[in-house]
Design a protein around this nucleic acid. Structure first.
Length: 210
DNA sequence: ATCCTGTTGG
DNA sequence: CCAACGGGAT
């Protein structure tokens, strides 16, 4: 299904260092902070959190919300995101102790638990599963839905895309890179108002051909 | 002036 | 389905 597309993207983008972060805790924090927010602004917040030693789920769980708001201000939506960070950190540490305690468990159980966290929807859950916990999950975001609709000229549901991708790519690295390449494509060419003329997929994309 | 690796509550 | 959340970069 997506094999040919993967190769086309790979020729252009190659292996991306996707979801750069020093620790799995930072990855989880990043998935929440980057919701509808540019990564540049998230980096500022992560830097501040690190400098102030509010950088692990344990540290966040015992931090005052007002202080958290100041630290993550640059990533926007700080009122809700500070609340999400607190509840997510508390619930994870209370139930599993830490992120390693969530690895190598029944995938559906962990997925259900994460989806139940306030502030965590499909994309954030999938990102945590794949990038912080190493489960073979494909991340379906707004870029993916928009790009696939144009490229294949047909609307796919999140569920369909996840199923196809996870069926086809069993390797964690492939799932990571496929998502990473799609996000980059969405920022470089397949934007809200697409730049098809200079896009390397213009001859393969149903929308790019007209 | 517009957009950003979304999610929630109405 | 849709308004609301929000500072920062381009």
């Amino acid at each position: 299904m997506f094999g040919d597309l993967y190769n086309l993207l790979y020729v252009y983008y190659g292996n991306l260092e996707w979801w750069p972060s020093e620790t799995d805790d930072e990855t989880v924090i990043g998935t929440i902070l980057t919701q509808n927010t540019s990564w540049k602004n998230v980096e500022k917040a992560l830097k501040k959190m690190k400098e102030n030693h509010v950088y692990t789920l344990d540290e966040i769980a015992t931090t005052d919300q007002e202080r958290l708001k100041e630290l993550i201000k640059s990533s926007g939506f700080y009122n809700q995101k500070s609340r999400y960070l607190l509840t997510v950190s508390k619930e994870i540490t209370e139930k599993y102790g830490n992120l390693p305690g969530m690895k190598n468990k029944d995938m559906k159980e962990i997925e259900g638990f994460i989806m139940g966290l306030d502030g965590v929807g499909n994309e954030t859950m999938e990102s945590i599963m794949l990038y912080a916990l190493d489960y073979p999950v494909f991340v379906v975001d707004a870029y993916t839905l928009r790009f696939f609709k144009r490229f294949y000229g047909k609307e796919f549901s999140r569920k369909e895309i996840r199923n196809y991708a996870e069926e086809e790519f069993s390797e964690i690295d492939q799932l990571k890179n496929f998502h990473g390449m799609i996000v980059n494509l969405g920022k470089d060419f397949c934007k809200k108002t697409p730049v098809c003329k200079s896009c390397f997929l213009r001859n393969d994309c149903l929308y790019g051909k007209h």
